[in-house]
Write a protein that binds this DNA or RNA. Sequence first.
DNA 1: CGATCTATTTATAACCT
DNA 2: TAGGTTATAAATAGATC
Lengths: 185, 185
Amino acid sequence: MGRRKIEIATLKDPNTRQVTFSKRRTGLFKKANELSILCGAEIAIVVFSIGNKPYSFGHPGVDVIAAKFLQEAANSSDAKQIDAQGNNPSNELGDMNRLNQQLSDVQTQILEEEKKGAEHDERLKQHQVTQLSQYKELQASYLELQHRVKDYVNAIEVSECMILLAQEPVVGITKQVTTKRRKNN
Amino acid sequence: MGRRKIEIATLKDPNTRQVTFSKRRTGLFKKANELSILCGAEIAIVVFSIGNKPYSFGHPGVDVIAAKFLQEAANSSDAKQIDAQGNNPSNELGDMNRLNQQLSDVQTQILEEEKKGAEHDERLKQHQVTQLSQYKELQASYLELQHRVKDYVNAIEVSECMILLAQEPVVGITKQVTTKRRKNN
DNA sequence: CGATCTATTTATAACCT
DNA sequence: TAGGTTATAAATAGATC
């Protein structure tokens, strides 16, 4: 999708790779955000750069979805024929299920904390801008809210918001001083 | 990107929503796959449809990355100043960290099972085609292998493989009794 | 009803500043 | 060098089969 077609193979040039990573990651998160809104789906994405820096996107939240995902695995083995709705995606996890069973317990506690976390995030936002996934999740949720209100101009709004979501977590070399803000309107 | 521009708002029509979900999910996974190969990044995506059916993509694997992500969170709280590489993305998880600590423990056990699971998956594949995420992960890994070998024709290969990754887990459009049938004949 | 086919909209590779 | 611009490749909305 650019001036020229490229092969999908590891980019050798570090500089090009970094630029591409940043741009495509932004694009990926934007796509995920659109998918969740358009189809009412829950999505969680976790990305580790080649330098092992974590980036995440989640609606409603990475932790929530991760827990749900693992729980799903546990259930499928516990009752191999649950599913009155033809909804048994897997029943071959075997022993792993016993472990997931334990996870379920912890997961329940996490959900508890999640609720309190929502309010907590509010304060965090004011206290200091963070690059924590929790913060991003909050923004994502907020994003959807705007969409529902605006409804027909939201496509444009998304683009704007993605700029926020794209913010990188203290990239080593980065010097995010430039943030040119248009204080015009 | 279609015949006409659409607003990013929840699709009301169940049929349209299902179709869009399927198409865009496939596109999202393809993008994720390209990003991981182009930039050597590790990516995990978990999606729950509106009907709560799980779909996932992961390189090297959803579980592995999820564990890494959670561990990261746990560490950041356990030692708020680790990070000799300016790599402390967050330290405001608060109480939630204690829970993640517990998760880490269980997670370690899961990784153990993961290894055994790899071989197990092989048999499963022959026993019966499953729609389990584990299976998809295996395919994703296999995909990259092909890429490295072919190197310059991989762009085409990706397209091919995405068809496999796109396979849906027993789509349960349970009762999509078309409300509106083309009363053509 | 799901798989295919195009007209268009989007994403983005290479540039440019 | 990070961020903005533009030509072009790629994704996909709606139509068709």
